[in-house]
Design a protein around this nucleic acid. Structure first.
Lengths: 206, 206
DNA sequence: CCGTGTCAATACGGCGCCGTATGGAACCGC
DNA sequence: GCGGTTCCATACGGCGCCGTATTGACACGG
């Protein structure tokens, strides 16, 4: 007795392990211990399964994560929370790299592009919360997002180089990322970095 | 009259356009205007074609690039040269992202891992040239390498966000990268960032 | 002319996958 | 019991690809 959600979950696993092209109906059916007959009851075709998997992915790795980060109100703490949240799951890393390198079905690319835009905009908002202007915030957001994406790949290609949340060196790395990925104190006289009227200058915390 | 090099070149194109799994003998043969009969004269099988393509890729995108960057002797100028070199080709970006997300043949993953290690070590040497200790240089190298890898993906997923070498905004971005990806002046009294050259950097294994 | 080497076309068997069609077992209300 | 619904199994045709013959066209030196 499977539900369509079970299939979507299995498809997401398959994406992480074998890539988007590795999402094949019959192998997944074997993994689930059933046959294709079950699949074509729940889904119209393979493409529908991919769409369901993508929706699951966006809900978990974007909606939920951003919601958790948003609960942090202090701008600096929010960025730090973002960095740690995003470096947590190893499974999510594999899925992300697999998705963002998909080529075959056009709608997968569109989907990834839309989600990436959402994430980048959110990071930009985080930096804007520090008092940066839109342009400068966008630059920093691109930097931070790039480091995130690059870290995913490094964790995959060079395991051991980039620490994960369960390793002791992880705290040091987050600190290192914070000092390089967060612009130095804006409250000082070095306010030339803000390219627009700073609505409210964020106070620094500890 | 084709040479095995022509096939390898076409395979590299196929990797950039359709991914590693998209390297299929018969479609490439159609692209080249011949049939499989030609292919199996030059190569034993599909795997041999992939190996040839990977060798071509390493020679062009690692050996040659690192050689050009090495000609820059000044440490800061060398890092800047590295950043600009590496952000030049759009084709190379697509190939890299496709390769670094391959899953199917194990030897492709091994190959990418080895090349990634070469690149990362080179970047670390660049930072060591600034006077940084091994540990600190490794951290900065991981940052810079991550930004490079992330930029590849952003150029692909969010075209227009990250400028390419032919756009006018490219110069500004390189400058921005330089100030954030190069530690502040070490010649000053703030030499605490150097980790004082420990005897062996055995902390990091292979 | 003949033999040999080079490069490519054609034909074939096989495999893994997609999607459809059909059947069947379990459960439901009645 | 009986039709209906739900969920899955089985069987089939088709496609795209791999790899292996086998044959052919075109050079070249003898």
């Amino acid at each position: 007795m499977l539900t369509s959600r079970d299939w979507a979950e299995a498809a997401l696993d398959a994406i992480g392990q074998r890539g988007v092209e590795g999402v094949a109906v019959e192998p997944i059916a074997r993994d689930l211990g059933v046959t294709k007959g079950s699949f074509y009851w729940h889904f119209a075709n393979r493409e529908a399964l991919l769409v369901a998997a993508l929706q699951l992915w966006e809900a978990r790795e974007t909606d939920d994560v951003l919601e958790r980060v948003r609960q942090e109100t202090d701008p600096r703490a929010r960025i730090q929370r973002l960095i740690t949240e995003v470096n947590a799951s190893r499974r999510a890393s594999r899925i992300h790299t697999a998705l963002s390198s998909a080529t075959k079905p056009g709608f997968v690319r569109d989907y990834v592009e839309r989600v990436s835009k959402r994430r980048l905009d959110f990071i930009q908002d985080c930096y804007a919360g520090l008092g940066l202007g839109a342009e400068t915030a966008r630059r920093w957001a691109l930097m931070t997002f790039s480091v995130f994406l690059g870290a995913l790949q490094i964790r995959r290609d060079l395991p051991g180089e980039w620490p994960t949340a369960d390793e002791p060196a992880f705290g040091d790395y987050v600190k290192f990322l914070m000092v390089t990925l967060v612009p130095p104190d804006l409250d000082g006289d070095d306010a030339a970095t803000t390219d627009a009227a700073p609505a409210g200058t964020a106070a620094r915390n500890g």
